[in-house]
């Protein structure tokens, strides 16, 4: 693995160029260009918060948009990474059949360009929060706990990159993988505290019946733990309505964050070595 990393380092200039190219191409033929990376989640989240507040019993939650955005933006990054990486090798097939480059550059470039979009989106998020605060003072947009943001981003990056290695390698041989990823990430959205608060999970009848095991089980999912951590660290936790009563927010359980970090690193390392084992067979696929 060390020699492969060395090879990758030799090609860093190419990686940089590829990321630039990817960002350039993405919005090349669209009028609003880069704005789409913020406009898209914003429109989605506005619809979501409308439903969230009016039909899901969260009338008393102010700035629902902010709470949803904080968890939704990183989730979109995760989802886009996985969906985009599936096609990276196949799209570049005419290239890698004719010329040598370390194949892992392709999924890495795709993940990094998505990561840059996430950073831009987070910047817009803080901007949005500030504007909301100025118009309608409520939730102060900057928490001191936001200093943990880089840690969360790092875990998120490792997880997405690791899974992207697996997906891009396997999808080259079996194109079913991309459909599977599409369904699974869609379902993952519902399994994560984006459209609901984790307090709802903790206080659900099923969880109480199971003696808290459901809550633990869902938290073992690194995406769940991350979504929850983003929301708790970026915005001040508030009282959450559960069955008509307002309950105090649960403190962030750091054990689950560390668990997510551990799982992510394992996935990154095994994903990278699996990719390297398979990469020479890409060009020979039937």
């Amino acid at each position: 693995m060390l020699s492969e990393l060395k090879e990758l380092w030799k090609f860093r200039e190419l990686l940089l160029t590829m990321v630039q190219r990817e960002i350039k191409i993405r919005y090349k033929n669209s009028a609003l260009g880069f704005l789409w990376s913020m406009l898209n989640p914003l429109i989605t989240v506005l619809v979501m918060s409308f439903i969230f507040q009016n039909f899901l019993g969260n009338d008393q939650v102010h700035s629902a948009t902010a709470y949803i955005l904080a968890a939704y933006l990183p989730f979109t990054f995760f989802q886009l990474c996985l969906m985009d990486s599936a096609q990276t090798i196949l799209i570049a097939m005419p290239l890698i059949k004719k010329i040598y480059l370390p194949r892992e550059i392709l999924p890495i470039a795709s993940v990094i360009s998505n990561f840059i979009h996430l950073l831009m989106a987070l910047l817009m998020f803080f901007l949005f929060m500030t504007v909301v605060y100025l118009v309608h003072p409520g939730v102060w947009p900057f928490q001191w706990t936001s200093i943990y943001l880089p840690l969360l981003l790092l875990i998120n990056l490792a997880l997405s990159l690791g899974l992207s290695f697996y997906i891009s390698a396997f999808n080259t041989f079996y194109e079913d993988i991309k459909y599977l990823v599409g369904v699974l990430t869609y379902l993952m959205f519902f399994m994560c505290p984006i459209l609901y608060f984790e307090e709802r999970v903790a206080n659900s009848t099923l969880n109480i019946q199971w003696g808290g095991r459901l809550y633990m089980l869902m938290n073992l999912n690194p995406v769940f733990a991350l979504s929850n951590a983003y929301r708790k660290l970026l915005i001040a936790p508030i009282k959450v309505p559960v069955n008509g009563q307002m309950v105090d927010p649960l403190p962030l359980d750091w054990r689950y964050v560390w668990w997510a970090a551990f799982v992510s690193v394992v996935i990154l390392v095994t994903g990278y070595s699996t990719f390297n084992k398979l990469k020479w067979r890409f060009v020979e696929r039937p």
Partner: peptide, 25 residues
């Protein structure tokens, strides 16, 4: 390697951008 001329050109990028990209590869 000149295994196929123009392999690795991206159709949406300009000739100049492709010069950079290909030479860096």
């Amino acid at each position: 390697p000149l295994l196929e001329l123009g392999a690795g050109f991206h159709p949406d990028l300009t000739g100049l951008e492709n010069i950079y990209f290909n030479s860096i590869i």
